[in-house]
Design a binder for these strands. Structure first.
Length: 946
RNA sequence: ACCGAAAUGGCGGAAUUGGUAGACGCGCUGGACUCAAAAUCCAGUGACCUUCAAAGUCGUGUGGGUUCGAGUCCCACUUUCGGUACCA
């Protein structure tokens, strides 16, 4: 009998909705388990087959845990504020709220189709005022707190004002941007604005001058990503580094805790390493270098104070505040030209392009505070203003970048460590003995570092410092589609928080969304909203995408609470996320910000755990294949040629035009090409190429004149699946053709969850065939039950329990691909055995339920099961069914396998050793040789060494 | 450039602590059924050598190393993917 997935799946989908099969209660005596997916941004191209990979995995785990006796929270929502909706609005005039609403509905339908067991009543949407009210509320808490370095936690800012009025900055233990020093009298005499500025220096949410990539033509700030060769990727407009007052979050205050608490998490070592490197803790010294003939000093941070005698020049970042004052008249022109050049380069370019070393001399000199010599001060793009102090002491003898710079500009390279005793070590390794280094001579680098720090501290020209690479997070966006800041500025420019009861501050509706000029945000256009009362004005920047996503997992615990972001009871029951699954692209950004917010909320006593995500797994990306046709540049009429004809043509003569995947024959294979029909579809899609000429091996003609056997090959590359490349594969199409069960199992079967892999539908027939065979086990030709109550055979029980054991251990390690193959092996075996035992097959049906929720629910009810199959107990293996009486030993000679030897399990080792040499197949290999030893690994293998 | 990951048949991938490389599936080849095709079922399928078979040799990105034994551990490299702070 044929299994009709369309009918069965539609029926159970609505039955599950109706019965609220997946509704989760906070009121339960059962132990909790919280499985979370990274919620999607609802983009205009819909869900593609890559998204569900992680969702299916978490769904299987959620169902498995539920069947194992847990109360499982498995929610879904939308990260609904974001740039694409805003850009779409600018292009089309459709309001982001509207396009986002439509996209979300499409996503919901798609997710529903896959049979995911979300409790949709807990849906969280970041762009809704009911939600972002609490995002704003958390922002106000950040604004109202500072980080106390002694208490090692966030404390109310009011304590600071109190401290200042009593003692000034004396004994201050607050994490600040700049080190300030003033007395209590100074504080009393400050104006309200001055006091506000001082406090701003310590708030966890604060305003500071930051550099952004400003594009005047687009009226917006750009990400480094959006800049190519110094101009905007979109439109090719000039981009400049512009200083602007921006909100920032003081994540740097939490560096040490973010670093230390990584040890408590069940995350992959590689991911923890990435976070550790991102935090980038390093110890060293801050050292001041006086500028010759000036009162100025340059502050630098170095991890290698031991090499201070090797400093032969200093380098400032081009944006460094001392650049203009240190530039001598005769260098002015050159410096200005250089700054113009640097302004056009992104941070990425500046770091990655290390072959072309650039820089300019300021004309000024600094004095080495230990050695006392005079050294030139240069400016170079390889020093970044955002890292450290934005200035370095250059030691070309022991730093490769400094060395490249010294070579290029012919500056002295001084060796201060004799590394001859450690051959093969790089110049940067801390191996050898200090030389030419005065008081440090003869020391090893590690000792010399300590000695040098002691020396600079003694001379009060510097001090020991632990530095973190992680910078404070920029929290302002000059965008419309984001959370408004719940603050306002008075006439003096003092920033005031709104009251909690005034929240939410809703985003005003703008008919036209436009980038401003000179850094103004689109919200500036909503004048009634901005100037809400006489002399006062609102902040016109909005919060970035990660604001809403930094705490959404807490809201799922109590999504409709209007009094709190979540109740104490809900928080104390659900605690934290037990398993979090999402893409590796969030490895540092989102995961670091969420951890920071969570720790802050912990400090304030709102959440019970120090970390939000106990176990985390990054699923790999499912990539698409991007097919492009070769267009000869500047050809008239435009000429496309087959990929195999491109041959030796220089790459600058060819433009690669992406082709919609639906036009491509043999899509995803090495033989991918367009035939005549494909070309006709292509010109219908791209009418601008209507008169183009297409050339393959045999002919060259316009579209309508092509012969039937025409074949133009395309270039295929693996890349992101995205609307931009016209290669999005919609899960709905796969579900329609093969069913959700099949789609789910096929995605899992593709390979390990954590690996990236290109999408390919070719193998899906294997899983589809499996489900058909599975179905046939339960039904005879007349749709009647084919199972009975007969006692199962020993072989059938062994097949079943082998499968249970494998699947259970695979579920714990999230190895879904091998559990699918375990099911295949089991079903093949039970078919071969013609097993008709209810005991075996209905147990197998429960085992498969988390993977294939529809077909198993159908079978469960067909055999009179009550309730949902998804509420049954998950099968447990019976080890006694698994033991075999024989062992199959591979017998190797010198590590090369020569024979397979089956012996009874009970054979003692001594007997194995004696009789293995009597085997005919082994004798011929060892005859006449001296046997050195025989290695027997019990139950595993035997190796004879000669 | 820096940080992280990956590389195994024609393809996706499998392989407890180092212990039978290629499970499972796709594809392909041959056969059965059929007038024929599709579907289904059965058998074969890493490469080389060999008339066939048996047997053998080689084989997990490249080059070295450790070991009785290396896909797995160590060193050096190549390529691809993700991230690098305003894409999400």
């Amino acid at each position: 009998m044929e299994y009709n997935h369309r009918e069965v799946e539609a029926r159970w989908k609505s039955k599950w909705d109706q019965d609220q099969t997946y509704k989760v209660s906070n009121d339960s005596s059962l132990p909790k388990f919280y499985v979370l997916d990274m919620f999607p941004y609802p983009s205009g191209s819909g869900l593609h087959v890559g998204h569900p990979l992680g969702y299916i995995a978490s769904d299987i785990i959620a169902r498995y845990k539920k069947m194992s006796g847990f109360n499982v929270l498995h929610p879904m929502g939308f990260d609904a504020f974001g740039l694409p909706a805003e850009q779409y609005a600018i292009q089309t005039g459709i309001h982001p709220a509207e396009s986002t609403r439509q996209n979300m509905q499409r996503y919901r339908d798609q997710l529903h189709n896959i049979g995911l067991n979300y409790d949709w009543s807990r849906e969280v949407i970041t762009c809704q005022p009911e939600y972002y009210r609490w995002t704003q509320w958390i922002f106000l808490r950040l604004f109202e707190h500072y980080y106390d370095t002694s208490a090692r936690k966030a404390l109310p800012i009011a304590r600071l004002s109190e401290h200042f009025s009593k003692r000034g900055t004396e004994g201050l233990t607050a994490h600040g941007l700049e080190e300030l020093e003033f007395s209590s009298e100074d504080w009393q005499q400050m104006s309200a604005l001055e006091q506000a500025d001082v406090l701003m220096n310590y708030r966890l949410a604060y305003r500071k001058l930051s550099y952004v990539n400003w594009c005047e033509a687009l009226g917006t700030v750009l990400a480094n990503d959006e800049i190519k060769d110094g101009v905007s990727e979109r439109g090719g407009y000039p981009v400049e580094k512009k200083p602007m007052m921006q909100w920032a979050l003081r994540i740097s205050a939490y560096s040490e805790r973010l670093l230390r608490d990584l040890d408590t998490l069940e995350w992959s070592e590689s991911l923890k390493t990435m976070q550790r490197n991102w935090i980038g803790k390093s110890t060293g010294a801050l050292i001041h270098f006086k500028v010759e003939n000036s009162n100025e000093a340059i502050e630098i941070f170095t991890t290698r104070p031991d090499t201070i005698y090797g400093v032969s020049f200093m380098v400032l970042a081009p944006e460094h505040s001392l650049v203009s004052s240190l530039t001598q008249d005769n260098q002015k022109e050159e410096v200005r030209n250089y700054l113009d050049y640097v302004a056009k380069r992104s941070d990425r370019d500046r770091q990655s392009d290390q072959k072309s070393v650039t820089g300019v001399f300021t004309g000024s000199y600094a004095i080495n505070p230990i050695k006392g010599d005079k050294i030139p001060i240069w400016i170079s793009e390889y020093v970044l203003i955002e890292y450290g102090t934005g200035a370095i002491m250059a030691v070309p003898g022991h730093d490769t970048r400094d060395q490249a710079f010294a070579r290029k500009f012919d500056l002295p390279i001084i060796q201060v460590i004799d590394q001859s005793a450690a051959p093969g070590s790089s110049i940067e390794e801390k191996k050898g003995t200090l030389i030419h280094s005065g008081i440090l001579d003869g020391l090893e680098p590690e000792q010399a570092i300590e000695q040098a720090i002691a020396e600079v501290e003694k001379r009060t020209v510097g001090k020991r410092k632990t530095q973190y690479r992680m910078r404070d997070a920029n929290f302002s966006r000059q965008r419309y589609w984001g959370e408004p800041f719940p603050v306002w500025y008075d006439q003096e420019g003092i920033c005031h928080p709104m009251k909690d009861e005034e929240l939410p501050l809703t985003l005003p509706f703008l008919q036209q969304i436009q980038g401003g000029t000179e850094g103004k945000s689109p919200l500036a256009a909503a004048e009634d909203w901005v100037y809400f009362s006489e002399g006062n004005s609102r902040e016109t920047d909005t919060m970035p995408g990660y604001a809403g996503s930094s705490w959404y997992f807490l809201r799922y615990m109590d999504p409709s609470n209007e009094k709190e972001f979540a109740s104490r009871e809900a928080l104390s029951y659900w605690q934290d996320v037990d398993l979090y699954i999402g893409g590796t692209e969030h490895a540092v950004g989102h995961l670091m910000y969420s951890r920071f917010w969570h720790k802050f909320l912990y400090d304030l006593g709102y959440v019970p755990t120090i970390e939000p995500f106990k176990r985390l797994v990054n699923q790999g990306m499912i990539q698409g294949v991007i097919d492009s046709m070769a267009l000869i540049k500047d050809s008239h009429p435009p000429e496309f040629i087959s990929e195999d004809l491109v041959g030796e043509r220089p790459s600058e003569e060819i433009a690669w035009i992406p082709v919609h995947k639906d036009f491509v024959k043999q899509y995803g294979s090495p033989d991918a090409h367009l035939d005549k029909a494909g070309i006709l579809s292509f010109i219908k899609w791209r009418p601008d190429f209507e008169h183009a000429v297409f050339t393959d091996k045999n002919q060259s003609a316009t579209a309508d004149q092509l012969s039937e056997n025409f074949c133009i090959r395309t270039r295929s590359e693996v890349g992101k699946m995205s609307k931009r490349y016209h290669n999005v594969v919609n899960p709905d199409d796969v579900v329609e053709e093969y069913g959700a069960d099949c789609f789910r199992m096929y995605e899992m079967f593709l390979g390990p969850l954590e690996d990236s892999k290109p999408w390919d539908t070719k193998g899906i027939n294997g899983v589809s065939g499996f489900l058909k065979k599975y179905h046939q086990l339960f039904y005879d030709e007349n749709k009647n039950p084919s199972l009975d109550d007969s006692a199962p055979s020993k072989e059938a029980l062994k097949a079943l329990h082998t499968c249970i054991k494998k699947v259970r251990s695979d579920l714990e390690s999230l190895s879904f691909n091998t559990s699918v193959s375990a099911f295949m092996i089991c079903v093949n075996e039970l078919r071969r055995l013609q097993c008709q035992s209810k005991e075996v097959l209905l147990t197998l049906n429960k085992l498969l339920a988390p993977f294939a929720p529809f077909i198993t629910e159908e079978i469960h009810h067909f055999y009179g099961g009550t309730g949902s199959v998804h509420h049954q107990d998950y099968p447990v293996q019976d080890e006694s069914c698994l033991i075999s009486d024989e062992i199959n030993y591979p017998v190797s000679v010198n590590g090369k396998k020569r024979y397979e030897w089956i012996v009874p399990r009970s054979t003692p080792q001594s007997e194995l050793e004696n009789s293995v040499l009597q085997l005919e197949e082994i004798k011929k290999w060892v005859e006449g040789q001296t046997i050195k030893k025989i290695i027997i690994v019990p139950g595993r293998m035997i190796n004879i060494v000669i």
